[in-house]
Amino acid sequence: MGKLLTLLVALCLSQVIGAERIVNCYWGTWANYRSGNGKFDVSNIDAGLCTHLSYSFFGINDNGDINSLDTWLDYDLGFISQAVGLKRQNPNLKVLAVVGGWNEGSTKYSSMAGDWYKRQNFINSALNLLRNNGFDGLDLDWEYPNQRGGNWDDRSNFVTLLREIKEAFAPYGYELGIAVGAGESLASGSYEIANIAQHVNFINVMTYDFAMASDGYTGFNAPQWAVENAINFWLSQGAPANKLVLGVGTYGHSYQLSDSSQNWPGAPCRGAGNSGPYTGDSGYMGYNEICLNNWYTVFDYNNAAPYAYSGDQWVSYDNVLSVQYKMDFALSKNLAGAMIWSLETDDYRGQCGESYPLLKTINRKLRW
């Protein structure tokens, strides 16, 4: 009997230890419209590198109903069905519909969460979206409760919304995730952390965007200390480690230096850096753009992050080494896993060497 009990305990422990960590791959479907080597569609996705594929984004209308933000791409081109079809390549892949995002704002979500009828509209439309298209769950990316046109009641209303979604999803086995602001000041104003954690399968913590050109000086997009502080804050407020997913940005924030001879972190800048050839947004460059530049590159070990500069252009980003530091921290805290924002700005074509270098680094640390 004693030997049997020991064997059962060992078996249970091995199952816990061997449980696969999450690697959640966000996909900004609009990258289909980029030109040349920046164009990204379903054919560019390696389904074996992700446990979850987060199809971004859907929006809502004023009544709380979920709607497509690009019906031509989602349905006419068949991107949704093609994304769900990736489960033929990886039968364990979960494909999630992501609702929200920065451009959707907060006002409509605040109104929906605070109104019972609009919440029911949202939940019913979510069920229809998932059932009709073969999605495995929903990721709600409200940026952010109690901010950008929201109000203080958003914090408790968000808990109510998530509880009602969870109850509606339970008969179907759908997963429910959320994407959340990372830092203490943002998170404490937007979330009742312990309460929301009860109702979701996992929490994608957006541990990036800690600095940008609007600050007036150069800074690191995701320095290790800021990432660790954010995760430790979420843990301290009652978020279970096994529901926290650490976010990695496959992009950098770029700056135009005020004085090209002052090119260190904290140096003054006069605004956003030049746009990259694929992404086309000033102040923002994909890793697949950064790695092609022959800029002078420095790895700052105090921040466990690289930066690069050329003339009056300066960029902070993540590379393979900085991602390794982040994954070591995630493992040390026994987190649920990691996510990337987003697939289409990793070096998915392998123009600078190995394809998907950042995503593969995450997999090597967490899964392989």
Rank of each mutant, 00 (worst) to 15 (best):
P268S: 12
I231R: 02
Y309C: 03
V16R: 08
A304N: 13
V99W: 00
A305S: 15
A336G: 01
F122A: 08
Q324D: 12
L235K: 03
V84N: 09
H199G: 04
S56A: 15
Y144W: 14
A182C: 08
Y309L: 00
G105C: 05
A222L: 09
D74Q: 07
G249I: 00
L257C: 02
Q313S: 13
F158G: 02
A241C: 04
K326F: 10
G266L: 08
L246M: 14
Y255D: 08
A126C: 08
N274D: 12
V315L: 06
N61D: 15
S106D: 04
Q120G: 04
G36D: 11
D46W: 00
F79M: 09
T361K: 13
T6D: 14
N263I: 01
G105M: 06
Y348L: 01
P171E: 06
S54W: 01
Q120A: 13
D259R: 04
E164G: 00
L13A: 15
S68M: 07
I196G: 02
G150K: 01
N274E: 13
S35D: 10
P268T: 06
H253L: 06
N37Y: 12
I203P: 04
N303A: 15
G183T: 09
L7D: 10
P223N: 06
D259L: 03
A194G: 10
R349N: 15
I196E: 00
N128E: 12
G100L: 10
G134S: 04
G18W: 01
Q120H: 10
S56E: 05
S258G: 12
L127D: 09
K333D: 11
W102A: 15
R148W: 07
A211L: 02
N61K: 03
G137E: 05
G353I: 03
N242V: 01
A10E: 06
F202G: 00
I66N: 02
S322V: 10
W102Q: 13
E184R: 14
D347E: 13
T297H: 11
K243G: 00
P277C: 03
E344W: 08
W314Y: 02
G181A: 14
N319M: 07
M285L: 15
L96N: 03
A113C: 08
G276P: 05
S111V: 11
K3F: 09
Q237K: 15
A170I: 07
K118V: 01
Y172H: 14
N229C: 05
G173E: 08
